[in-house]
Amino acid sequence: MSDMIFEARQVSSLRRGVFGAGQVSSLRRGGFGKKTFKLEEISFRLPRGYIMGLIGKNGAGKTSFFDCIMDEKKRYSGEMLLEGRSIHENHLQMLDKTGFVSEKNEFMELRTAAQNARMLGRFYSSFDMELFKGMMERCRVSSGKTLGKMSRGETVKFQLAFAVAHRPKLYLMDEATAGMDPVFRIDFYRILHELLKDGDCGIILSTHIDEEIEKQLDYVGILEEGRLVSFGENVPV
């Protein structure tokens, strides 16, 4: 088994050329002068048992990077590996091993948290309903609450519980702590460190919060206009 939980090798997002004339990785501008965004040559390695933070301004490419990982179609050049295996060779198995916490991750808003977990959890090979309920209790959110009536913070807690319940190897968290109350944020990181304790998974999260960057992250990658300008161990100043 590979020591690296996740590896990105020269990942550049692909954009369609003018009039859809094939995919051109070096294109900076789309057709008719419309500015398009792309990731460029992102490379890093995340060992098992660590949290990596993706940091950057709004529009730096954090969400686009997560999209590249989660999208069923391969829309990038280069390679991304989960536990040493290409994530797009068998994307479904990769999704089975990935827990995604993001605003983009939609659930059924008219159903309760428990109904969502029961209906959607069946697609994972090892979804544990008891673990889900336990996590919801720990996050102090009722499993019987309708998702549409939850606050943003509660939705993130639900998503965290849903992700934890299928025991993924890689957690991807896009701005998960934004809008979270400070008391729960401490507990949130405690939960993440507990998940990492057995050293069998890794976490990539994007954040803007200075305190988290200083204290909670093991590795930090800085994104600027789609480029990873810096990556390394987080050394608190």
Partner: peptide, 8 residues
């Protein structure tokens, strides 16, 4: 709703 789940 199934986009990010292991469903092709």
């Amino acid at each position: 709703k199934l986009k990010y789940l292991p469903v092709s």
